[in-house]
Nucleic acid binder design. Structure first.
Lengths: 210, 210
DNA sequence: GCTACATTGTAACATTTATCACAGACTACT
DNA sequence: AGTAGTCTGTGATAAATGTTACAATGTAGC
């Protein structure tokens, strides 16, 4: 059952009739860290709102290689699941839970219906499109224009910002996967960053110093 | 003055009252090949519909380096100019006319107003978001997962498809700019592709053989 | 035809990133 | 404490891409 109070806090711009609709017609799903919520090529049947936890959104290639694009946090929605809504298309991305999550699943027909009935839903959807599009453009910048050491720095900073801590719990291997590079390259670049005083390295854990 | 017949042909899904609104309230702009329609950082005041010509959309970095993302063709609209509409934000991209173009400029307030008033406009906007988002994801694939020779092949094929010809009028230098590489690298890779029988090289002009 | 300019070809070399190989260090579990 | 597994460090080497330098060719304008 959806908790009205917390939903209201997380989505403060939703009007009360929309909130009521959400509480009545959506289902709640809990997903443990590690779960793959959505795979490339699967059909999308719901628009996903996040109320708890943390989700990573990836682009996959044919051989299963992953490329990290952005995080989904409480109060946010999956833009792809909205975009595909109108056409009930296949997912273009992979979504992986990295911290135990609670999700509101809104059936696609409602997602579409509410666009005309609830101004606050319409604005939320448009704003989700906008902010994700912008985020994806910044991701393009980093791969199109930057070398691996700059991308790594960008990655660490973004991770620290998202998780609101300078202690990043992650292995070199996972960073390498996210950046579509290799572990040795990341280890070496991190070592150089440590020598420059930018980070302090620990096992499965990187401390950002500035 | 907007030509009603051609607009109707290019945007067949627009209902007649929407068409009437467009003809009344929008302005037509003609732009010659070479014109930069929009620069990164400029404020967006209109949503742009293309009725004639060809436009290339780029992402720019701080030092003015360009990275080509996609084409805008007649019957299409600039997704970024729609996305920024609601917030009247700064442009995140650069738009360059590559074939003399005719554009319909829809003031931002109307773009937003019509979303609720014209179902066909709403659907057009949502579909523009969707298709551009998907296109951008494919662009991410090509830079995240592919090496330069594969990206070049992808680039040439896309160019041929968009321009509906296997004779691509372009210099090695321009390809290098679009892919954020260098002319020498592109020349070398093209030479190899020619040896493999994939293309035939001419001056300022590449013939795609398969 | 001559000249200036844009375009292409290519060699030599530098740098960045990836791959292979292996060792040492830490952790979890029994 | 011992063992298996994960994580990190690092050297050697290969491959891809970028840089520098210069020559050759085609084109446009006079």
């Amino acid at each position: 059952m959806v908790n009205k109070i917390s939903t209201q806090t997380l989505f403060p711009n939703f009007d009360s009739s929309l909130l009521k609709n959400i509480l009545e017609h959506s289902t709640i799903v809990e997903a443990q860290a590690g779960t793959v919520l959505m795979r490339t090529g699967q059909y999308i049947r719901n628009t996903v709102l996040v109320t708890q936890g943390k989700i990573k959104i990836y682009r996959e290639d044919d051989e299963g290689k992953e490329f990290f694009m952005y995080y989904l946090l409480p109060g946010q929605a999956c833009a792809i699941s909205m975009i595909c809504a109108t056409k009930s298309e296949k997912s273009q991305i992979m979504a992986k839970v990295v911290e135990d999550a609670e999700l509101i699943m809104v059936p696609l027909q409602l997602m579409d219906k509410w666009m005309t009935e609830h101004r606050s839903w319409y604005e939320f959807v448009i704003d989700t499109y906008r902010s994700r599009f912008e985020e994806v453009l910044i991701v393009i910048d980093s791969i199109a224009f930057r070398s691996m050491d700059e991308r790594l720095e960008f990655y660490l900073k973004r991770n620290a910002r998202t998780n609101q801590t300078n202690d990043i719990q992650i292995s070199h291997q996972e960073i390498a996967n996210d950046l579509s590079s290799t572990r040795e390259v990341i280890s070496r670049l991190l070592k150089k960053m440590e020598q420059r005083g930018f980070v302090k390295l620990h096992r499965s854990h990187i401390e950002l110093l500035k």
